[in-house]
Simulated assay, not measured.
Amino acid sequence: MGERMRKSLFTIGEKVKIKASGKSVTIYKCQYVKNMKRYSYIVNEYPKTFFFEEELIEE
């Protein structure tokens, strides 16, 4: 039938690092992007941009 949404890798309030810069950030908002079949994240430190899971790593 329909595709199942998988669980997001990170949770709101979780501290993670941006792979490209190594900067430590906190997840502010998480949203599933259906047409891309992955989650996007907004972080407290950069509220005007978003990151996909593959751009972030656990701290």
Rank of each mutant, 00 (worst) to 15 (best):
E59Q: 10
K37L: 06
V25S: 08
R6G: 10
E45Q: 15
I18P: 01
S24I: 12
N44K: 15
T11H: 13
R4V: 12
K34E: 13
F10I: 07
F52I: 09
V25T: 01
E14S: 10
Q31F: 05
K23M: 09
I12T: 12
K23F: 07
V25N: 05
N35D: 14
V16K: 03
I42T: 13
E3S: 13
G13Y: 03
K48S: 11
N35S: 13
E58W: 07
Q31C: 10
P47N: 01
F52K: 05
E54G: 05
E53C: 05
S8G: 06
Q31R: 15
F50H: 13
M36S: 10
E53P: 00
G22M: 08
I42Q: 13
G2W: 02
S40A: 11
I12K: 15
I12E: 10
I18N: 04
E59L: 03
E3K: 11
V43G: 07
Y28D: 13
S40G: 06
G22S: 06
Y39P: 06
L9F: 07
K29Y: 05
T49V: 14
M36R: 15
Q31L: 09
Y39F: 15
P47H: 04
N35G: 04
T11G: 00
G22A: 08
Y32M: 01
S40K: 15
M36L: 15
M5H: 01
G2K: 12
E55W: 06
E14Y: 01
F50Q: 12
G2M: 05
Y46E: 10
M5A: 04
I27A: 08
R4A: 13
S8M: 01
Q31P: 02
L56I: 06
M5D: 03
Y28A: 12
K17M: 06
F51S: 00
G13C: 09
N44Y: 13
G2E: 12
I27D: 09
F51G: 02
K29P: 03
E3N: 08
T49F: 00
K34C: 02
Y39Q: 00
K19H: 03
A20Q: 13
Y28T: 00
E54V: 03
Q31N: 13
R4E: 14
E3P: 01
Q31G: 08
Y46V: 03
F50Y: 14
K23P: 04
N44Q: 10
E53I: 02
E59C: 06
Y41R: 09
I12H: 01
M1S: 14
Y39G: 02
M5Q: 14
F10G: 06
E59I: 01
F51H: 09
Y39K: 07
E53L: 00
T49M: 11
K19N: 12
T49Q: 14
V43W: 04
E3L: 12
I27N: 09
Y32R: 04
I42E: 09
I27Q: 07
F50E: 05
K48W: 02
E59F: 09
K7M: 07
K7S: 11
I12D: 03
T49C: 03
L56S: 02
E45W: 08
S24W: 02
G2A: 10
S21Q: 03
I42K: 14
F50I: 04
I18D: 01
E53A: 13
Y41N: 04
N35C: 05
I27W: 11
I12A: 06
G22E: 06
